[in-house]
Amino acid sequence: MFTGIIEDLGVIEALNQEDTNLHLTIKSKLASELKIDQSVSHNGVCLTVIDLSPTTYTVTAIKETLDKTTLNSLKLGAIVNLERGLKLGARLDGHMVQGHVDQVGQCVGVEEQNGSWIFRFEYDSSLGNVTIEKGSVTVNGVSLTVVDSKDNGFSVAIIPYTYAHTNFHTFKKGSIVNLEFDVIGKYVSRLYAKTSIS
């Protein structure tokens, strides 16, 4: 479990394909504090540390993960949002994030508003995911509050700190992102779908 509060911006140092798996080596200040088998969120995708050096660590993404997330489009030098797993007893500053991406979405608009930014995203609503205004959503691993909710999209407001300390500053119209929808909302939506059928 994660909180959606980004700890560091990592840099992709190496990408090594092995059969259908992709090994990603990331340079991060967190590397010296990690251990083998630890879970780390990468743009919202939970992956397990398999190798370490003083300044880098390596994780592996399997085919299913590559097919359902944006990890397969990462290039050398790409900036990645990083967060270590939630520590029990710590404050929960974001919201409960599983690190299991539900689907990818696309940035369809960026609007600067006197020091903050409004980002608009769209996604395929046929997969059954929903947002609500003032509800939670995770974009590339960042816990955010929905400003405006539509059937196939939503907007979020980004403050300068978040803009500078996550990879939101790299987004532009057309950028593809990982989306994880609120786990409570997913359960409610699934239960509602079952009761409306019967």
Results as ranks from 00 to 15, higher is better:
131 T>V: 15
175 S>Y: 06
175 S>L: 03
112 E>H: 11
190 R>Q: 14
184 I>G: 00
61 A>L: 05
92 L>Y: 02
97 V>W: 06
162 T>N: 04
64 E>T: 13
81 N>H: 07
85 G>Q: 12
91 R>D: 13
56 T>P: 05
147 V>S: 15
16 N>C: 12
180 E>F: 02
77 G>L: 04
66 L>D: 02
109 G>Q: 12
141 G>M: 11
1 M>E: 08
6 I>M: 07
166 T>D: 02
147 V>C: 13
45 V>T: 15
31 A>S: 09
33 E>L: 13
2 F>L: 04
188 V>P: 02
141 G>Y: 01
122 E>W: 00
67 D>T: 11
33 E>W: 00
5 I>V: 10
129 N>S: 10
40 V>L: 10
172 K>E: 13
143 S>L: 05
7 E>F: 05
157 A>M: 14
48 T>D: 03
85 G>K: 08
129 N>V: 13
8 D>K: 11
29 K>L: 12
94 G>E: 04
53 S>L: 08
97 V>T: 13
113 Q>C: 13
154 F>C: 09
32 S>M: 11
26 I>C: 10
113 Q>G: 00
174 G>L: 07
75 K>M: 10
82 L>I: 08
160 P>K: 07
128 G>E: 02
162 T>F: 03
25 T>Q: 14
81 N>G: 08
48 T>Y: 03
97 V>E: 07
167 N>C: 07
122 E>D: 14
109 G>F: 11
89 G>S: 06
118 I>M: 12
156 V>M: 05
174 G>E: 07
17 Q>T: 15
41 S>Q: 03
134 K>T: 11
117 W>R: 13
111 E>T: 15
